[in-house]
Amino acid sequence: MVFSSGISKSMSILIIVLLIVVVAGGLYYYTSVSAPPQYPSKPITFIVSWSAGGGTDRTARMLAALLENMSGWKVVVENKVGGGGTIGHLAMATAPPDGYTVGIITFELSTFEWMGLANVSYKNFKPVILYNKDPAAVIVRADAPWKDIIELTNYIKENPGKLKASGTAKGGVWDIGRIGWLKNAGVNPGALPWVPSTGAAPCLQELVAGGIDICTCSLPEAGPLIEAGKVKGLAVMADERNPAFPDVPTLKEKGINWSFGTWRGVAVPKDTPDSIVKILHDNIRKVINSSQWKEFMDKNGFGMAYLPSDEFAKFLEKDYRDVGELLKAAGYI
């Protein structure tokens, strides 16, 4: 309406476009000149490789909320989902090492390279803190004939291939738990074939429905079904018993020297300055010592754990090596 001829119309579009671009460019330049004086001077982004509402996401969001409360930081949680966790972990590893993009790394990081999914491992990160560990457990139907884990292990040894186990995808955390348990008990891991499943919940259902015989997931995940008298835990792959499930013995008590589980922690890209890592560690440490955090972890059935940066680094290296050995032992790679 304002402009009558077609030419002036397109010209003015062009002018408006150019104007907007120039103004925006100027704004970005302006913001870049004033360099940030002290960490953190702007919002921090937590990258989570798993979808919103999952266990990792829930812990990350709680961590973010408590950091905002206790340290006054602004923390945004961003879910970068896909590729079985590779996409998020790749994004964390390749983020600018300025401490403003912080990764919530999970157990799967130890498997990507071995499984040939992505070239990312603990070597791409500088670990900050480990805040959660959930040991694997051996779960069977409540009416199963085996009295304890030794009877079950012997049964598997004598009847290879008869029983089936499940809990997660092939080469996933609970699968590796199974391999380690059998290997350390002197049984060929192939004697208990693995049926892939999309997670612990469908696998537990499958167990109740009679589709499989053993599920190796964490005890809290099976909690309601244990309470309902549908399934029972035979052993937990941890150094100590879980206080919420005092009747379930550890593998070590039964003479099988093996503990294993999934974990979650915080890490930053490899080239991040140590001073930033320290600030992050100290503040997150404060959070995980708080009563709110402990209550949250307890109620959700997440296992609490703590490792400082240097020990977390050693832990990651060992986990990576263990996983590689076990995947080879199972003939996966």
Partner: peptide, 19 residues
């Protein structure tokens, strides 16, 4: 990534298609 065996299918080498 195919959910049973973990084979990578039809991604034409793109990481974004893994999931």
């Amino acid at each position: 990534i195919e959910p049973v065996y973990g084979y990578v299918r039809f991604t034409f080498g793109r990481v974004e298609l893994l999931g």
